[in-house]
């Protein structure tokens, strides 16, 4: 109700006179026309294949195809939820994902802000370029490097020993493993993720800074009071969108880094489903798990969207 009221208010203001639905469509005709190609793409490449989702409620028979495979109702979901190990991996997934969000989400923002403070263009360019590099190196390679770094005679343990402590097998220690996962993930992605924030900073009107300087605001204050608020819309939308992948804790990373000693804290939905799939490739089961993940993501996304709306108004939300 409220939305409609605002809408018509806006319309009244922008067109000056309300002339009913037909006029409204006439007014927006070009905008609707612009939406057509995107609409077609979504219909053809996203919505048309979505009938595959029914596999979650069927037993897939390869020669019958998706539509003619027999219905089995909630069988695959029951299998998922009756499996006690599923709750372990669900918990791990959520924890790892949330930690990654808490530490990984602010890191690129802070990096972008600091980068923006650097006034030597050449140096800044270097830092910026180099910070992206880890993004291009696969987790197979990175995992090998981190295993060496955290090994008993690796540099991290050398430091530990220098402080007079006994060396630790970090990669096999349940107390440290999640921290290592989160830390290395931040390391790999902070530079690359900062691009979007740099782009937003690039859009900040220089006049705002000038005005603040006139008022005698220092660099730090301007960073917090001008640049950061200008980033708020990007930050909030990135935060909301990141909810869409909340149950993807990072398969490549974890698969290449975990070992039997830390399964208890590191086994996540994707690694578990992968191991099950190796023995018994089951499209229906994995579709059911995928659907579960999507539904959770949808709920979270809508909740966070609502939360952001309540806190910051509708300017920063998805809709």
């Amino acid at each position: 109700m409220q939305a409609t009221a605002t809408e018509s208010a806006v319309q009244t203001r922008s067109s000056g006179r309300a002339k009913g639905r037909f006029n409204k469509f006439r007014q927006y005709r070009m905008l609707f026309l612009m939406l057509v190609p995107g609409f077609i793409f979504l219909l053809v490449f996203n919505y048309a294949p979505m009938y595959g989702l029914v596999l979650a409620f069927k037993d897939f028979r390869i020669t019958s195809g998706i539509l003619d495979s027999p219905w089995v109702g909630m069988k695959h979901f029951n299998k998922v939820f009756d499996d006690p190990h599923f709750y372990v991996v669900l918990k791990n997934t959520i924890l790892i994902s949330v930690y990654k969000l808490i530490f990984g989400f602010p890191a690129p923002i802070a990096f972008a802000l600091l980068l923006n403070e650097m006034r030597r263009p050449l140096f800044r360019k270097w830092v910026q370029t180099v910070s992206y590099l880890p993004h291009f190196i696969s987790w197979i390679v990175l995992a090998g490097i981190f295993t060496t770094l955290f090994s008993l005679d690796g540099p991290v343990n050398a430091l530990v020993k220098a402080f007079g402590h006994a060396p630790v097998v970090f990669m096999a220690d349940e107390r440290y493993f999640r921290s290592i996962l989160v830390g290395t993930s931040v390391f790999q992605s902070f530079g690359w993720s900062s691009i979007i924030f740099l782009a937003a900073i690039a859009g900040v009107d220089p006049q705002l800074h000038e005005a603040a300087i006139m008022d005698g605001a220092g660099r730090f204050r301007r960073m917090i009071q001008i640049t950061l608020p200008m980033l708020a819309p990007v930050i909030s939308i990135m935060l909301i969108l990141s909810m869409g992948t909340i149950l993807d804790a990072g398969f490549d990373q974890i698969f290449n880094m975990y070992n039997a000693q830390v399964y208890g804290v590191a086994d996540v939905i994707d690694t578990y489903v992968y191991r099950l799939g190796l023995i018994n490739a089951d499209y229906s089961y994995s579709t059911a798990v995928g659907m579960f993940k999507s539904v959770v993501a949808l709920i979270l996304l809508l909740s966070v969207n609502r939360l952001v709306k309540a806190v910051g108004g509708s300017d920063h939300t998805l809709w």
């Binding site: 090998g144 090994s151 097998v169 096999a172 290449n256 070992n259 000693q261």
Partner: peptide
């Protein structure tokens, strides 16, 4: 002492 961390490549 860290055999259990090893992958084949290690």
């Amino acid at each position: 002492p860290e055999f259990f961390v090893n992958k084949d490549s290690n």
